[in-house]
């Protein structure tokens, strides 16, 4: 059995947020971002952290990377106490947390890598050697010697990934590393992540793409509202649903229909997975799709649902999230992205 390389015990984090209403005094509100989280990540595994934005995933990562001091509990990373041996914890990590934002745009890729290598106390000769290796590994080509400001989004993400590898740390924290990459680049990155894992690196990987988690992760934890609501291998989690069948339905679905479907006998859970230009994708978990399908069709026709397609599916990690929370991860994330677009969290 592998050793616990990250151990988290009763970790909690509370924030005081101020709600401002016009000229009134701001009202203070306590937000529990993490609620007594217990977690063990073993040496040599790829561990997925799943959850919508605002679920506590980023707070957990920030605590484990020493960027935030937890309000309570304890944690050990690579055998070092998170609170008492901060610097050794940092020395054990390679982090890709801010995506392309963690780079200096006026420096070239090579200069960025050299700079961050120095901050990780990597001796000069090893930095030179490592940069040459990473250039080959990540197929960076000539762009490594251009200033980052001239890069495409995908190139910036590759450079940010390279930055996290510069110190050859035993533990890698990769926060949505493929988010702005094209399909080929994302596939390449996942291949490299697997390769790094085979070489012995422990990888903590966050993503909103369920197929990525299923493809890469040995185990995953689903976080919602500051708590770990599911933990296990993807297969274990899907089995734990006791769902034999899942149905995916796409079409124009009037309001209220989802609730009607939820209340149908034999339906375990139903939730909207995606809403795009008047078309809704609905995920339905049920005991037996053959029995439920005729009844479901009746309900859909009665409620004037315009169906584009309906098909039985294998349960996915997204379905695990739906059953555990009654919501779909993709919708939660999209709503948060819209809120951000409306101004929350933007530049002041």
């Amino acid at each position: 059995m592998a050793q616990a390389i990250i151990k988290v015990e009763n970790l909690s984090k509370t924030f005081i947020s101020k709600e401002r209403k016009k000229f009134l005094r701001p009202k203070k509100r306590t937000i529990e971002a993490l609620k007594d989280v217990d977690l063990t990540i073993y040496d040599g595994e790829i561990f997925g952290l799943l959850g919508p934005n605002g679920a506590g995933k980023t707070t957990l990562i920030k605590c484990l990377t020493t960027l935030l001091i937890p309000s309570g509990g304890a944690a050990w990373v690579n055998g070092f106490d998170l609170l008492k041996e901060e610097n050794m914890v940092r020395a054990s990590l390679g982090c890709m947390l801010m995506g392309e934002r963690g780079l200096y745009w006026k420096l070239t890729g090579r200069e960025n890598l050299d700079y961050f290598g120095a901050l990780y106390h990597v001796p000069k000769e090893k930095r030179v050697e490592r940069i040459t290796y990473l250039k080959e590994l990540l197929k960076m080509g000539e762009f490594i010697d251009r200033t980052v400001e001239t890069y495409s989004s995908g190139q910036k993400m590759i450079m940010a990934f390279a930055k996290s590898l510069i110190n050859n740390a035993p533990i890698l924290f990769l926060d949505e590393p493929t988010v702005t990459m094209d399909v080929h680049a994302a596939r390449d990155l996942r291949r490299i992540v697997k390769q790094l894992n085979k070489e012995g690196h422990t990888i903590v990987y966050t993503t909103h793409q369920m197929y990525e988690a299923e493809e890469l992760c040995d185990r995953v934890a689903i976080i919602d509202k500051g708590e770990i609501i599911a933990l296990g291998t993807p297969t274990e989690l899907k089995k734990s649903l006791n769902v034999k069948d899942a149905i995916e339905l796409e079409g124009a679905i009037p309001k209220g229909v989802v609730q009607i479907i939820k209340e149908m006998p034999g339906v375990i859970e139903a939730a909207i997975k995606e809403e795009k230009r008047g078309t809704t994708t609905l995920g339905i978990m049920c005991e037996n799709s053959r029995i439920i399908l005729p009844k479901l069709m009746e309900v859909l026709l009665e409620n004037e649902v315009q169906i584009e397609y309906i098909k039985p599916m294998d349960a996915t990690l997204e379905d695990v999230f739906i059953v555990k929370t009654g919501r779909a991860l993709s919708v939660d994330t999209a709503e948060l992205a819209k809120e951000k677009d409306r101004g929350a969290g933007g530049l002041d």
Partner: peptide, 15 residues
């Protein structure tokens, strides 16, 4: 302070 479980990669603290 206990030693690292999985090493420290290229980290070499010196003057």
């Amino acid at each position: 302070m206990a030693g690292p479980i999985a090493g420290l990669g290229y980290y070499e603290k010196s003057a």
